[in-house]
Design a binder for these strands. Structure first.
Lengths: 228, 228
DNA sequence: TTGACTTAGTGTGAAAGTGACACTTACGTG
DNA sequence: CACGTAAGTGTCACTTTCACACTAAGTCAA
């Protein structure tokens, strides 16, 4: 008991909602808690903020420690601090949203101390603390974000087909999108580069594309709207 | 020195960016600090979070204590926690945006201990801590928010003219808007109720309107887009 | 080898929405 | 009663949106 303060202070944590896309549905990365409270329950990766680290740093550190993920897209979501949200006492948590590409995914369950696993957004297990609330807010944010900037950069592999990016949008928005209109609109932005490579598989090969990062970032700075 | 913890904890504060509209430009409510650090400097109203109160509660309490404002629209903005942002040590601050109507405005400088005053957004004094950063984020949020929901409800008096709401939009967006197109679009949403009352002054009287709260909220829930 | 299956890829036309634009109305003031 | 000032109002060209159906190219199995 080494730290004393004149007034009581809440504990401060960070939690991360990690979204991934497997080509079909949107997924969330959860960890199984190895300590009380909620021992054995699934929860968002996260933990206590150190005194000398910035908030995004703390989020990245916890993410790496608990899931092995690093160098991911990270964005602050909101802060949750209702008294009683943590049975250990007053704990305020700054929530982050992380987006990871398939090539960055850790193999499910391969981290040392804690167990981590991807869950489809629609089939989540019961979650510890107020994490269902945080997750709901994260989904809402993602649905909002996708309207004014393509999130494909962060969720798709470096090379992808137009069908993949459409499937991603359909997964996030939760409704089907017309193929021709979608492509027309997407290509009009001119930040996709068609490659001379094609998928191979059991059907007609699809042309691969990549993002033109410079054009995309220029557009984002100018502020653009991508409605569907 | 009554409170002891096994690990060190940051202090937790809330800060409020309070926007008002005086019919001409966008204003921000600031207080003059009565204690160190930054004694005598202008700053956002805010203060330490109590152990038993929720974050929005803390923001409302500090707002009332320091500016006399109550029952205002309040929305969480973001959390600022970079080490070194407060010279007293590690202090993490949850920032809120408040929108107040002119009829809720306190008279400038009328609170007891601290001095409060409205400043036009373009002519702000130097601010304490990282408050310039917070303010910039709040303005950005307001500009974003206005695109998908009219903020007039919270910033305009109960009865207002179409010219007033247009002036508000022009103040926030920082550019002129065509009068006819603006009215056409705004009225098409059908959440404004024309009243049989008119302004009086030295020109042609303008018809007053009010919001139809029910229709407005129904629209917000359905999600609508209000581009200009 | 060929036919069945599956996904990729492509254009048009009708309808709605956007944005530029100028004059008349109605009051207060001197 | 003339002037100043802000309120209020409609049209048209252009752009954007949305609905919609077939052909192309590969795999696989009989």
């Amino acid at each position: 008991m080494a730290y004393q303060y004149e007034y009581p202070r809440p504990a401060l944590t960070v939690d991360c909602v990690v979204f991934g896309f497997d080509g079909d549905g949107l997924q969330v990365l959860l960890i199984r808690r190895g300590i009380e409270p909620f021992l054995g329950a699934w929860a968002l990766p996260g933990g206590f903020v150190h005194m000398d680290e910035d908030l995004p740093e703390a989020a990245r550190r916890e993410l790496e420690e608990e899931t092995g993920l690093h160098d991911v897209f990270l964005e602050q979501l909101a802060t949750f601090g209702t008294p009683g949200r943590d049975p250990r006492g007053r704990v305020v948590s700054v929530a982050y949203v992380a987006l990871v590409r398939p090539d960055q995914h850790p193999a499910t369950g391969d981290t040392d101390a804690s167990e981590a696993a991807w869950f489809p957004c629609g089939e989540l297990p019961g979650l510890a603390f107020d994490h269902p609330l945080i997750l709901e807010a994260a989904l809402e944010r993602l649905r909002g974000k996708i309207r004014y900037q393509p999130v494909g950069f962060e969720l798709l592999p470096k090379r992808f087909t137009l069908s993949q990016i459409q499937a991603l949008y359909e997964a996030i928005l939760g409704r089907p999108i017309d193929k021709r209109n979608f492509r027309k609109k997407l290509l009009a932005f001119d930040f996709l580069v068609p490659l001379e490579e094609f998928t191979s598989g059991s059907h007609r090969p699809a042309r691969l594309h990549r993002f033109d990062r410079r054009k995309y970032e220029a557009l984002v700075r100018r502020g653009f709207l991508f409605e569907l």
